[in-house]
Design a protein around this nucleic acid. Sequence first.
DNA 1: ACAAAAGTGTTGAGAGTACACCCATGC
DNA 2: GCATGGGTGTACTCTCAACACTTTTGT
Lengths: 224, 224
Amino acid sequence: MKHTYEYPRPAVTVDSVLFTLRANDLAVLLIRRRKAPHKGKFALPGGFVDANEGLAAAALRELAEETDVTDVTLEQLGAYGDPGRDPRGHTVSVAYFTFVVAEAHPVKAGDDASEAVWVHWADIEGGNAELAFDHATIVHDARVRLQQRLDDPRRHAGFELVPSRFTLSELQRVYEAVFGRTLDKRNFRSRLLALDLVETVMAAQRTGRHRPAQLYRWKNSRKR
Amino acid sequence: MKHTYEYPRPAVTVDSVLFTLRANDLAVLLIRRRKAPHKGKFALPGGFVDANEGLAAAALRELAEETDVTDVTLEQLGAYGDPGRDPRGHTVSVAYFTFVVAEAHPVKAGDDASEAVWVHWADIEGGNAELAFDHATIVHDARVRLQQRLDDPRRHAGFELVPSRFTLSELQRVYEAVFGRTLDKRNFRSRLLALDLVETVMAAQRTGRHRPAQLYRWKNSRKR
DNA sequence: ACAAAAGTGTTGAGAGTACACCCATGC
DNA sequence: GCATGGGTGTACTCTCAACACTTTTGT
């Protein structure tokens, strides 16, 4: 490896793709820019990596600064370094992603520079919400990776898909939103129970408008 | 995304993990350093990304410069940015990997600074060949990803696993080296043929010390 | 002849998929 | 009583893994 100094070089940034479920639809946490460049467009929360700062640490710091969201577990998606991806200069962005329960992470109120908002997938897909830079690519890649992660019948997640106590239907709705199609209720439940990852919370039921539902939690006291 | 200038920031490098099959063993293309730092240790071919240079392009350029290897298809592995990974300063390395037929890519003869060599996996694993920086981590991660890629029964590779004409046993040996265990010959062959990715080369047989073997090639004229 | 690699099918287990009806509650 | 979501089991298909012997060549 060569080692020279002070050549013109790309800068390093991080960006985070946070997914959640909003109104039975997949949604992504984005920053609405109120200033140029890209005024009015949406962008992923992120920013420059400081000297001697780890990548995941930088992503968490920027996420907290820009959205107030903390206590999430990010997974690396990949690096995006196309020279033209940012018109202001050459930056290499390392992207992270995860899934969270939106209610557990209230987002920051908007200030005069930007505003953090959950944007429905339909608005992203439909071009209703225009994304800055190459963030549309990143978001799409992140969704593919999220699907791949939830597909694995072994680990079955590792993300914060649902609150600590949840009904199987709530969990199924998350899967359906991520995959963009309905799943068979019986197959979903039997497979999940066969994995032995969840257990019932005794005498706990979610009461609502209809028949109360059995509450579950993840086994091994590992929060998911 | 904030935009400030001339903070102390990490530099961006790329590193490539090239796998091949040598003497029925998995091997990795490494640079033996003849100069400090890390004199005598092995390192992945790689180096700094230039301004306005794409990441994959930088990886290919450094690979060509340091090993003479060209015409390979790199796949991104991920970014490694631990602040302490390079004692000389904070660098973020974007790692790439692939599998190639070593015979099709002769490596550079050693010069006085470094030498490109194929190092057997056993020497890496056994600590016989010490790797510089965090390159041991990267190499292990790359092998896991390579296994995952070859596991997928659909795409079944996309790498240059074998020469354009090959016997099924030759291909099987690649798989066995990558997974580190023997595979059942009948299962391997029947599954591969069922995928309809290969076809026989008529009247072509590889003759050797024993019974001649039928030669195959990848279908669709897509080289693999 | 013998050593070495090439080639060839069947069976059993498990996972995934499709599919329909009754139950408990709120209104 | 009816609308809404909760809850349950079986049959078929397909994929994966285990497993042994004959064939062809070079020496």
